[in-house]
Design a binder for these strands. Structure first.
Lengths: 341, 341
DNA sequence: CTGTTAGCGCCTTCAA
DNA sequence: TTGAAGGCGCTAACAG
């Protein structure tokens, strides 16, 4: 299992290691015959250059560190997929890790990735503590946050790419209003999450402007899952309620609500229109057909990767850029128009 | 953005690089005070050891190369998740790549990973060409195939972990038989896939033994997707058919069939019982409730990672091991018992 | 065109 | 308990 090195090749070809190196790197100052001869030997012997050694000199690895929470969530899994695809198209490999800013080992993870000399780090997180984390590290390595907490007030101190959650919330309210709903529910608010905060605020602001009443149901759990959505749904459906539509903080929560509705005999969309957020793959399944606001994961992923590569290639860490993508309404079957009396 | 090295620390501490190295590596032969002093400086200066340089010497990176096809398939995404989790628990990071044995760039990918000095490669594939690929590379780097093509006849020339697809097919037939079905469909056979072949053979053998008739519907597409399942389903449902149950080659195909059934007014499970294979997350969704044979992705992932680590640590490439996991029947709502007349 | 020398950041003998 | 020297595999001057 001992690998063959440039030195071995040099010996076999009867030349110096430098010459071999030149042959391998398409250097111009080398005779075609010698190059051909050397390359011949290399392929015969199955030589593969040790990229670590090369990186040690070049200070570039062409490897991106990608950190995301909870790969089991379909939204994050989709992001991971598109990030990998895009990076590899652009000549970078991805080192995938799971971790979140809250958990204690995140610093260790970052230190590891930096030690591994990754060219840049892409952190996916909606947590409020993502920003300070990156502020700590971005002087050491180019970083991009995907799914930022970015209040309009706070100055830009990190590079980030994110769905425009505020607009998303706004669009949600507008859509439900257009369908005739005036009395609605926002389900699944989590105050620990910056994205939720913005989404919620946009929804509230629009609702107020449009003269809608909104009843907020908070999610006490740490994550937005089918289960937590189901729990909150059951609780709600146990008693009569006046609202005709619900905006769920995430598609997963919406799916949970859907299940609860099934159990409690609440018909969707006849009794209750249901609007999600994310557009995870599940939502498009024939039997589900969840109407939702799409985060356009592929666009998010591609934008983040490209931004990160820009940072890497320019090496500019003096100014920060923020890119916001507008979510897109995907109409399926869980929302209906109601006629006013 | 220039990183601080062991040499810088040595200068600052007024000692040699050797001493710093010793302080960092918990070497015994060093005075506690000097170690403390050095460590103090290291953390103050934010020193991080360059793991590439270390790997250059140690010949170990603690990085695993993980190659899988089509991360967009929920089955593979789930595998990726569990592989990453398990590897990181055991002290390894994962370099995630997508690629398949058929496509021409796979050799480049393997060469890249080996050049990156990964400690081992885990290839996920059901393709028939996975075996020759690994045979070519396993003398260079420890490899494990997840989702093997392993006919009982062919000798073991690679390390592999896989669901026992033959038994899976057998179990499927047995289950449908137990429910009273005698006339059944196998939908989605793809002859290019070793796993499908085995699954199919097991199903056929059991069906024959139990006296069931089976009608095989082949999948001409290259992949098993919802769309291809839907297409085949529509074709089938366009005409009357006698069978009362269907075993779909994969859950995704089953979901497609479910959609087609919806469209054509075929009630599942009343008119047709439907059994899937994989137990992807979708299958468990409240509105879906697909009865299926679980591949137990977490067990598959953990077993493969552990096997790979064994190979890495023992460095033994003379004998090959194969581990087969028995799939588990997950009963949900798409299969029903029929009473014989 | 080719070889010699030096060094990337770190670890590992071997001396002191 | 510490340091000096050499080397991991490769590239980059600088000579020839």
């Amino acid at each position: 299992m001992h690998h063959i090195t440039i030195k071995d090749i040099a010996r076999m070809a009867g030349v110096s290691v430098t010459t071999v190196s030149r042959a391998l790197n398409n250097a111009p100052e080398i005779r075609e015959e010698t190059r051909a001869h050397i390359l011949e030997i290399c392929s015969r012997e199955g030589y593969r250059t040790n990229l670590l050694a090369r990186s040690l000199i070049s200070n570039r690895t062409n490897v991106l560190g990608v950190v995301l929470p909870d790969l089991s969530s379909p939204f994050h899994a989709a992001l991971a997929l598109h990030i990998e695809t895009c990076a590899s198209e652009l000549g970078y490999q991805v080192m995938l890790c799971s971790g979140q800013p809250e958990d204690g080992r995140i610093d260790g993870l970052f230190d590891f990735l930096i030690g591994q000399q990754v060219d840049g780090i892409l952190l996916t997180s909606a947590s409020n503590s993502a920003m300070p984390l990156l502020e700590r590290y971005q002087s050491t390595v180019p970083t991009v946050l995907l799914g930022a907490f970015v209040s309009a007030a706070s100055p830009l101190r990190i590079n980030s790419v994110s769905t425009d959650n505020y607009i998303g919330g706004w669009l949600a309210a507008g859509y439900l209003h257009r369908l005739g709903h005036r009395d609605v529910i926002y389900l699944g608010m989590r105050s620990g999450s910056g994205t939720h905060l913005l989404r919620y605020q946009g929804f509230l602001d629009a609702a107020q402007e449009l003269g809608m009443r909104v009843n907020t149901i908070h999610n006490p759990a740490a994550h937005s899952t089918i289960e937590s959505g189901c729990l909150l749904g059951r609780e709600l459906f146990a008693k009569p309620f006046p609202q005709t539509a619900m905006f769920a903080a995430t598609d997963l929560m919406a799916l949970g609500v859907l299940q609860a509705a099934d159990e409690c005999g609440i018909s969707v969309p006849d009794r209750l229109s249901l609007l999600g957020f994310d557009d995870i793959d599940y939502a498009a399944l024939p039997k589900i057909g969840l109407t939702t606001l799409s985060q356009r994961t592929e666009a998010l992923a591609r934008t983040s990767v490209r931004l990160l590569l820009e940072l890497i290639e320019t090496g500019d860490s003096t100014e920060f850029t923020q890119r916001l993508l507008t979510p897109a309404l995907i109409e399926r079957t869980t929302c209906r128009s109601i006629t006013q009396t």
